[in-house]
């Protein structure tokens, strides 16, 4: 209960800062938009957008934007010099981990809700079964938030962490990217759930693994 209470308090504090300043979310959305525009330029063929590139553009843009968000995830506590105290709080490092993972999930869900229609518009793509794309995005964002919070938290005191974070995070979250892109591609073609089930189960498996391992590893490595 202490973990939950402390985690909720930390999350409320971070959300209050985010809402009051409106800096990080706004800048991340702008970056996501810019990234989508750059990708759309990259896939133009004789002046026409390549709509079949939608899954790749959407997921890679999300990955890049999430990476930028993760680099700022622990910054408020770090700049205030409060990180060591929060880690050594009464309930250990677990509340900090869960609050940061939840905060990252909030940010990435917001960006995703804004980005997905924009990318579909830019690439002139129509998705036959958007509900499965939404499910895959939800699963992907949960896994990325958990792994991202772990990696960002561990790298807070490390030199060149801006370079190291993507180096570590991208291969670790590769199953989510593979699954998400495949589900989106199948949903665009109007495939049935049975065809996507394997990929969705893979993403569920990854999320379960992340739910169990990431908080434990965060606790052991920051103890």
């Amino acid at each position: 209960m202490t973990t939950l209470r402390l985690g909720w308090a930390l999350l409320r504090k971070d959300l209050a800062i985010a809402v009051r300043t409106r800096e990080v979310a706004g800048l991340l959305m702008l970056f996501a938009l810019l990234c989508a525009v750059v990708f759309a330029f990259g896939f133009l063929r004789q002046g026409r957008a390549a709509h079949e590139q939608l899954p790749g553009v959407l997921w890679v843009t999300l990955l890049f934007t999430n990476t930028l968000g993760l680099l700022r995830l622990f910054a408020p506590d770090e700049e205030a010099g409060a990180l060591p105290q929060v880690v050594r709080s009464i309930a250990g490092p677990a509340p900090l981990f869960w609050s940061k993972a939840a905060l990252q999930l909030c940010f990435s869900a917001l960006i995703c809700a804004f980005l997905a229609p924009v990318v579909a518009l830019f690439l002139d793509a129509r998705v036959a079964q958007p509900q499965w794309v939404a499910l895959a995005l939800a699963l992907g964002l949960v896994g990325q938030a958990l792994c991202g919070a772990l990696c960002a938290g561990l790298l807070t005191q490390v030199r060149l962490r801006e370079v190291l974070l993507p180096l570590v995070l991208y291969p670790l979250t590769a199953p989510l990217l593979l699954g998400g892109v495949q589900v989106a591609a199948l949903a665009m073609d109007g495939a049935q759930l049975a065809e996507m089930q394997g990929w969705l189960m893979l993403m569920v498996g990854f999320d379960l693994l992340a739910v169990v391992l990431c908080p434990w590893l965060f606790g052991r490595a920051s103890a």
Partner: peptide, 9 residues
Amino acid sequence: ALAVLAGPT
């Protein structure tokens, strides 16, 4: 920590 996560991943 990262090496442990890398195994099942």
